[in-house]
Design a binder for these strands. Structure first.
Lengths: 146, 146
DNA sequence: TGACAAATGCAACTCGGTTGCGTTAAAATA
DNA sequence: TATTTTAACGCAACCGAGTTGCATTTGTCA
């Protein structure tokens, strides 16, 4: 199931243009199981014959973040990664094979932590909760990590 | 209370040289209440008359990370930040005034989350747990965030 | 279909971080 | 304490993710 159609509709209602890039980018993020780097985005788009300049991708991502449709996440690598806001959750990232697992089962823990802030009167706008390590497979064939 | 002396001693025992920069850097990280950026490190060192090139700071931080005495953390900003491993905990970062509060009271939540991974056989090597938002003070005088 | 602003492509740029190499200074030895 | 060795340093040049300015293209609406 993809969230892309709803997002595109919402943007159209807000009178924003639906360009080839904007549409394809939202669709790609909507079907990706993990947050994507700009490099990955360009590669994926190329596969579906949408050839774009990195500048346009960055500007598009900034636009979508302003509309609160996209969020930046970090796995402690060099570059940033991006995901649809509606798909926001947390990840276990294998440092060797790069496999990403969604951590749906942590949501209650995170909610619980955010309760703590209510008491402290700190208004949480954003959180980073990611776990980096080795997946089951890669623990066996242990070599160098990324 | 500073952790610097113990760390320096340990390095000396491992036959590493204790240079002016190495010593001053460990001491600065040891007295800082928050993880520091390289820019901040250079500024702090300058105040105590230790003038160093950014290259040396980066190399020193890489060395200290290899020795597992220092960790890289990210607050979702441009650059990275660094802290002593023994001081590792999590933070609430105000996006306006930059104030950083240690989240000692989250440790039990994080331990709990890591329990989850034991069941999944995912070996956690590192985690990112940071909360970004507005502190009590800045919520009142609300303007632009960083 | 034409007009117009929004979005795009491209070149040049910024800036955090890295690399190569010649120089300096910790610390072991005499 | 002077001498030797080599780890650590400073500097210049570089790398690459992300940004900016501007001319060109394209989505939308009359």
């Amino acid at each position: 199931m993809s969230y892309a159609i709803a997002i595109i509709d919402q943007l159209r209602n807000k009178k924003f243009r639906i360009t080839r890039l904007r549409k394809a980018l939202i669709e790609e993020l909507g079907i990706s199981k993990k947050p994507l780097s700009v490099e990955e985005i360009i590669k994926h788009l190329r596969k579906r014959k949408v050839i774009v300049h990195k500048t346009s991708v960055y500007r598009q991502l900034i636009f979508l973040m302003e509309q609160d449709e996209v969020r930046k996440v970090t796995f402690g690598e060099k570059g940033d990664r991006f995901e649809l806001t509606v798909m926001h959750h947390h990840h276990a990232v294998c440092q060797k094979c790069g496999e990403v697992e969604d951590l749906l089962y942590l949501e209650s823990n995170i909610k619980q932590m955010e309760q703590t802030f209510l008491k402290k009167r700190f208004k949480v706008e954003r959180h980073l909760v990611e776990f980096l390590g080795l997946c089951k497979k890669c623990q066996k064939e242990k070599t160098k990590t990324i």
